[in-house]
Computed example of a mutant assay.
Amino acid sequence: MKVDVEKVSVLVSIESDDRVGREILGQLPGVEVLPYDPAPARLNDMQRNAQILIPPYRGSHRPIPLVDQLPSLRMVQLLSAGVDEWAGHVPAGIVLASARGAHAGPVSEWIASAILTQFRQWPTLLQFQNEGTWAHRQFEADTLDGKRALIVGAGAIGTATARRLSVFGVEPTLVASAAREGVHGPEDLPRLARGHQIVVITVPLTNQTQRLINADFLASMDDSALLVNAARGQIVDTNALVSELETGRLRAALDVTDPEPLPSNHPLWRCKGVIISPHSARTVPGTNRLCYSVATEQISTFIAGKVPSNAASQVGVS
């Protein structure tokens, strides 16, 4: 759907993380950048005539109430890897696109660091350090070399994770929404849990992936296996995970949880063998620029009358 106007108006957040977006999009021919406040508020007349809305880099759900004020809206371009927060809020006929691909480097780096942290026992080492204890041979670290990692989600983040882990001698097994060369389909997932010392979750949240990692799957994982979730908390059955962690049979590294934010009295905080980061895997310098670079490509494609590669209809468990 080509936007048939002389100049396309794009709403970009006024917040500091989005400054780079205003700069990049401002250089795009035929585009007028309109700064806006993403907190629910009234848009002015010029803003209300915008054809494209970009939710902010942080807290992208906040401008959802503004959609009703945009009669000329033709596209919502997200800066996230998934579209789950917005999927039910965009009217029919309006293109919803993600920034899939932009997060692959930062998030796969977090995944690799989390796995190394758990296998090399850094939480235990820090406890000894805080106690002033020289703990030579008082802990059991492990190597990644020779381990097998089941990566559930073979999109940009999953494949980048596979490449990073291969450097450490890890053998990756990839699973996607449909089988292809070198990648298993979802029907193989139940039998693949066993025999992998690491399970990494990088799939988007959809009706098909909600609670994908359930009690049965967790029970089939090898003893002492590590579950890494860098996708969405709702993909994992939290109660089932807590039960496994409390026995000490499994370990986990979580960037996302269900619920989120995780309440201070939640049992996950007290489980042994788990490390938790506050949904911050992508939060390193430069990620916002990567997101806006992908967003600019998607918007350019849309303005040209073509379907953006990250349009929601094409975003799946890839």
Rank of each mutant, 00 (worst) to 15 (best):
T124K: 14
A99K: 00
Q118Y: 00
V107P: 00
E109V: 06
V170Q: 07
T133L: 10
P91R: 01
L116F: 00
S177Q: 06
Q69V: 02
R164K: 10
A162I: 04
I115V: 08
A97H: 05
A176I: 02
E171R: 08
A179S: 07
A160G: 01
A141C: 13
H61E: 14
H89M: 09
G59W: 13
P71L: 12
Q118N: 13
A178S: 15
L70E: 00
R100C: 09
H89Y: 11
S166Q: 14
G146D: 02
E181P: 00
G105Q: 10
S98H: 03
W86P: 00
R164N: 05
F139P: 03
V83Q: 05
A141V: 07
G158D: 05
L66Q: 06
A154C: 07
V76R: 05
G59K: 08
S177R: 15
T173D: 01
L66V: 08
L165M: 12
Q127C: 10
A102K: 04
A104K: 02
T124E: 06
P71Y: 13
R62Y: 09
S60M: 14
V107N: 01
V83W: 03
L70C: 04
R74Y: 12
E131L: 11
I157V: 15
G101N: 04
G169D: 10
W134C: 09
S108M: 10
S60D: 08
D142M: 15
T159P: 00
A102Q: 04
A104R: 11
G88W: 06
W86Q: 00
G146K: 03
G88H: 10
H103G: 05
A154V: 03
Q77R: 02
P123N: 11
V175H: 01
L144T: 13
L174A: 03
T124R: 09
W86T: 00
I94M: 05
W86S: 01
R163C: 08
E109Y: 03
G158H: 05
